[in-house]
Write a protein that binds this DNA or RNA. Structure first.
Lengths: 333, 333
DNA sequence: CGCCCCAATGTGAACGCTAACATAGCGCCA
DNA sequence: TGGCGCTATGTTAGCGTTCACATTGGGGCG
């Protein structure tokens, strides 16, 4: 910076002013400085700036498995939004779901001097940790979160109801459910949406089984579920598990949707090419990412704790070919 | 830091020494300092440290679409490895593939003072940009890369040969190929592996078609490909496109692998639950991420340009149920 | 018993920037 | 024509570290 100042024949402060588009620098002077900067290929040192301003223009993202479609898309949305706002994203991915690991991640990020944190970790434990975060650090949650923290989320309950009602509307007596792991808030909310939809319709409430989001678990649980010949409609808590279920159905030679209807959740891009193409609930992860970052930036600029806002994005039913009315009577494969 | 020093009755320098586990500080003193740190909940300021040391302990990752399985897993591998080495990861994802956008990303990262860069962007343009990066900044490529830059990669050619030979070995007269977009090095390498395998076996070399990695493009291209009744075996450049092809085959009522055999590439976790479970080539992305980071750290610690090393990881054939010998003669579904 | 050396600690400066205040120069009005 | 007030610029200090060097206090050796 000194060199630039010298070359331009001004003081370092003037250089700084040019950097910040300060209005009180004469066009001629600005030109000179700009020229000197280019000449020397000057690049401001962000560490020095951070040191004096106390802001790093960096935001931390805590994520639990960036390999999954949901978190990955959300992350991408956040990244894009951050980029547009001229912020950087630092990622910490959780290896385990314990309270300690979340706290450790939070700490690491704080030590790093991030200006704020977005948590894509829709887990109970994560939220407990977030809740009693020593304040001063703005935090928002993405995808799903507790009341205590601002969050941009999809209305999971509504999504599950959409799915359940769709199946009920087709004439199924009831709808079975393969849920996600119970420590995920989303899984619980979907289960609860499913349950209320059944109750509202006066339909019987079957026991629900819980998987771990993976296709494998959908497959394993599907095997058990299909022992019961009464099962004609299944709402699966995500598309991957739904794929597993589809697989079992094929193995058993039961037609989809002829014998059994299946609805997933997420709307992963591949869903449209499953056999059959999967009816599912679409969540706009990108939007979630975008909005959660907006919420966070608001909190950062606003200084203290932001308005305790929950932004909710509506899910949407994408009807494809894995759902149909139930088999009319006793059915032969 | 001053406060800690004061409370412990030592100088700030001694505090710094304790922070760095300097050997020349008496155990008693260290205890006092440690106690004072805890008491005051002291956290070293990373910006200040970065300012004076010139290192940020941050590495930048350029990625082109973190939603895809490959890049996402690689990213995860990098993150984990970085975490273990006590580095942070800053992400920049490319919106477009132009040379300018790559250069811009590189610049942004450099301005940020990252200690090094990993590029997960197996595109020709990306590499051209990497190649003439003003030196001084260590860069490695992950997944695939040009000779000029150190890279941790999977042997794509070998993988494609594995796939092709597997099909040939089953008795297919030849193997068709749905390739990835030609601006991806991986796509080109896979195509070339396929071609050499055919040539080595003296098999006819059909024209190849190219998609964009998506299931949709696999579907669309599959439609055209299947016009030709001679097609009994297809090697598809990734699992998602293979899924699309599977979909067409089902729609056409052609049995898999009875009528047509399909081999994918990547081994995404869902592949085992496709209908039928997909034979594919596994790439260990996690390992790639890990190794590329190791390469980078080596370059950083080593100071100047690292040994011009290419680390190659062997791919592996995962045989599942989408491949079988060709239909014996004229075949009826 | 005095000296030297080493281990343990302290001191000052520097890293590159921004914030706050100080100063110079100028036009304008009385 | 003197002074006021503005705009454009310069000066100084300080952000929280680490680095290089200076200082202190013992213990061992001659």
């Amino acid at each position: 910076m000194w060199d630039v100042a010298q070359l331009a024949g001004v003081s370092h402060q003037t250089v700084s002013r040019v950097l910040h588009d300060s209005p009180s620098v004469r066009p001629a002077t600005r030109e000179k400085v700009l020229a000197a900067m280019k000449e020397l290929d000057y690049r401001p040192n962000s560490a020095a700036r951070a040191l004096v301003t106390g802001r790093t223009r960096t935001i931390g993202v805590i994520s639990f498995d960036t390999t999954l479609y949901g978190p990955a898309s959300t992350l991408l949305g956040i990244e894009r939004a951050a980029h547009d706002a001229d912020y950087f994203i630092i990622i910490v991915s959780l290896r385990s779901f314990t309270r300690e690991s979340v706290l450790a991640a939070l700490d690491r990020l704080r030590d790093r001097g991030v200006d704020g944190i977005v948590a894509i970790a829709p887990l109970q434990t994560a939220y407990d940790a977030l809740r009693d975060l020593p304040s001063g650090m703005p935090v928002v949650a993405a995808v799903a979160g507790p009341d205590e923290v601002p969050v941009a989320e999809v209305d999971q309950v509504a999504g599950a109801q959409l799915a359940t009602r769709h199946l009920l509307g087709l004439g199924h007596r009831t709808v079975h459910h393969i849920a996600g792991p119970p420590d995920f808030l989303e899984a619980r909310q979907r289960a609860s949406g499913w349950r209320t939809a059944l109750r509202d319709a006066g339909a019987p409430q079957p026991v629900m089984v819980t998987g771990d989001w993976s296709a494998r678990s959908g497959y394993d649980l599907g095997r058990g579920l299909l022992e019961d010949p009464e099962v004609t409609a299944v709402f699966v808590a995500n598309d991957h598990m739904a794929l597993g279920l589809l697989r079992v159905l094929h193995e058993r030679g039961r037609s989809i949707p002829g014998a059994v209807s299946v609805v997933g959740f997420d709307d992963i891009p591949e869903g449209a090419f499953f056999t059959p193409p999967l009816t599912t609930i679409r969540q706009d992860f990108d939007e979630i990412g975008r909005r959660s970052l907006a919420l966070l930036l608001e909190a950062i600029d606003g200084g203290g704790r932001p308005p305790q806002r929950h932004l909710v994005v509506a899910p949407e039913l994408v009807a494809r070919q894995s759902t149909a009315p139930p088999p009319t009577t006793a059915e032969g494969p």
